[in-house]
């Protein structure tokens, strides 16, 4: 991988937002993953190069955080919460149903690479338990019927209905774009 020209420009602006450039490791890894769908070794090397860090340091950081996919995953990602509040509302049965419908196990992608299924820790949506996410979009109070419909849409490569919304429904700027609009930063030119 290599950052696209546009993403490279965004990367430079992200770095400039921080008092010290190393702070940009996580946001640049997010940017690399959003471009490629996963975090390749080349992507991590490029992040290291931009920040003047040893690649090993970036590899080590990336391996700490569960959201970074260090191998290619399915085109769509279903993340099912398995923590206490969701468990109390039947998330284990829900996960089993989803595995059955997908025909593949948790922690794996379907054979055609359509969907990657994972268990995740508390998603902070316990009032709507059991909950899951599809590509980051929340689905709450998920019934067996709703799960079937979510799985079927995902397998067709479509966005399932009934979710709580994605950034693109509301905003033109992509998630993770710099918070500080160009030319308006109070600390501009003072970063390292």
């Amino acid at each position: 991988m290599s950052f696209s020209a546009e993403n490279r420009r965004i990367a430079d602006r992200i770095v400039a937002q921080y008092p010290q450039s190393e702070s940009a490791v996580l946001p640049l890894l997010h940017l690399a993953q959003s471009q490629d769908g996963w975090l390749s070794p080349d992507g991590m090397r490029e992040v290291a190069e931009i920040l003047g860090l040893e690649p090993a340091q970036v590899f080590s950081v990336a391996s700490f955080y569960t959201m970074y996919l260090r191998e290619p995953a399915g085109k769509k990602i279903i993340s099912v919460c398995n923590n206490i509040s969701c468990m109390l509302q039947g998330s284990d049965e829900l996960l089993e149903r989803i595995e059955h419908r997908l025909g593949s196990k948790c922690g794996h992608s379907t054979s055609g690479g359509e969907v990657y299924l994972e268990e995740v820790e508390c998603l902070a949506a316990c009032g709507g338990a059991p909950c899951l996410q599809v590509d980051g979009e929340y689905f709450e109070n998920v019934t067996i019927e709703a799960a079937d419909s979510i799985v079927d849409s995902a397998m067709r490569g479509e966005r399932p209905e009934g979710g709580k919304g994605l950034p693109s429904d509301f905003y033109s700027e992509p998630l993770g774009a710099p918070s500080i609009p160009e030319g308006l930063g109070a600390n501009e030119g003072e970063g390292s």
Binding site: Y65, Q133, L166, P167, F170, Y171, G176, A177
Partner: peptide
């Protein structure tokens, strides 16, 4: 990181 809508709301 998981709160994608929340993060977008905040960024905007």
């Amino acid at each position: 990181g998981e709160m994608v809508l929340g993060a977008a709301r905040l960024e905007n």
